[in-house]
Nucleic acid binder design. Structure first.
Length: 240
DNA sequence: CAGTGGCCCTGTCTGC
DNA sequence: TGCAGACAGGGCCACT
C-alpha cells in the first residue's frame, strides 16, 4: 500500500455511514473504516497518539503527517475500485451500504417503508447498514429512548407515524452528537487534534444503568443484546 | 433469500 | 497479589 500510494493525489475524501474513502482517480479509492477504536491525527497538532497503536503514517505534500491509530484493530485501509451504485460512485466494499441520514438523497419515507417491511426487532433494523447507515449501538439506544420505543418491538408492527418519529429522533441524536464532538468516554476517543468529545454527558440511556430516566425518573435498565448491551427506560419504552 | 447469532480484536476493569 | 472473565462494538460469515 505504501508503494502504491506514494506520490498519489487524493482528489476527494468522501464518506457514507461509518465508511470513508479517499478518491484517487476515476477508478480507484482507498476505503477506510475506523472500526470501534480507529482514529486519525494530524501529526503536528494536539496530543500524540499511543505509538504502539500507530498503524498507518502518511507524509502529506504540505509537510504535515497524517496518522491512523487503532487500538482494537477492527479498523482498516484497503484499495477498492469505484463503481456506480444508485447514481453515485462508491467503492465496491461500500456498494451494499445504504445512505445515511445526512446524505442529501436520504429518503425518510422510503427508508420508513423498508423498516416496516422487516420481520425483525426494531433495534436490529436500526443497526442494519443495508437499510440505513451510520447507526451503531449507542445511537440506536438513544434514538429509541427519544421515540419511546422498546428495541425488541417488531419493526413490522410500527405505524407509519411512529416510524417517521423514530427517524426524526435519529436525525436529532446524530446531529447533536456531532455538535457535541462525538461520543467519548475516555482518552481513547479524540478528534484529529487530540480533543475529547463530551457527548457522553448528553446520553439519556446508554451507559446510564441504574440512573433515573430524564423523563419519568425510573431506573434505566441494561440488558444483554447480541454480545453487547441495550439500555432503555422500562417505563417510557414498553412493549405493546 | 431473509433473518440470526457467534466471533474477531485489545486493553481495562471487576470479582474471587 | 494474581488470575480469570466480562466488557466495549462494527461487520463478516456460517448457519437456520
Amino acid at each position: 500500500m505504501a508503494a502504491a500510494l506514494s506520490e498519489r493525489d487524493v482528489r476527494a475524501v468522501r464518506r457514507r455511514g461509518k465508511y470513508l474513502w479517499l478518491v484517487l482517480d476515476d477508478e480507484e479509492s482507498v476505503v477506510i473504516h475506523l472500526g470501534m477504536s480507529g482514529q486519525f491525527r494530524v501529526g503536528d497538532q494536539g496530543v500524540p497518539g499511543n505509538p504502539a497503536h500507530l498503524r498507518v503514517e502518511a507524509d502529506l505534500a504540505d509537510g504535515r503527517t497524517l496518522q491512523f491509530f487503532d487500538q482494537r484493530t477492527f479498523g482498516g485501509w484497503e484499495f477498492a475500485a469505484l463503481q456506480e451504485v444508485d447514481g453515485e460512485l462508491v467503492p465496491a466494499p461500500v456498494a451494499h451500504i445504504a445512505r445515511d441520514p445526512f446524505d442529501p438523497k436520504f429518503d425518510p419515507a422510503a427508508v420508513a417503508r423498508r423498516v416496516r417491511a422487516k420481520r425483525s426487532a426494531i433495534k436490529r433494523v436500526l443497526l442494519d447498514q443495508t437499510v440505513l447507515s451510520g447507526v451503531g449501538n449507542i445511537y440506536a439506544d438513544e434514538s429509541l429512548w427519544r421515540a419511546r420505543l422498546h428495541g425488541e418491538q417488531p419493526a413490522a408492527g410500527l405505524s407509519p407515524r411512529k416510524t417517521a418519529e423514530l427517524l426524526d429522533a435519529l436525525a436529532v441524536v446524530l446531529g447533536e452528537s456531532i455538535t457535541e464532538g462525538g461520543t467519548s468516554f475516555d482518552s481513547l476517543y479524540v478528534n484529529v487534534n487530540g480533543e475529547s468529545g463530551r457527548f457522553s454527558d448528553w446520553l439519556a440511556v446508554y451507559g446510564q444503568e441504574g440512573k433515573p430516566c430524564r423523563r419519568c425518573g425510573s431506573a434505566i435498565r441494561r440488558e444483554a443484546f447480541m454480545n453487547r448491551s441495550s439500555h432503555y427506560c422500562p417505563r417510557c419504552q414498553r412493549l405493546p
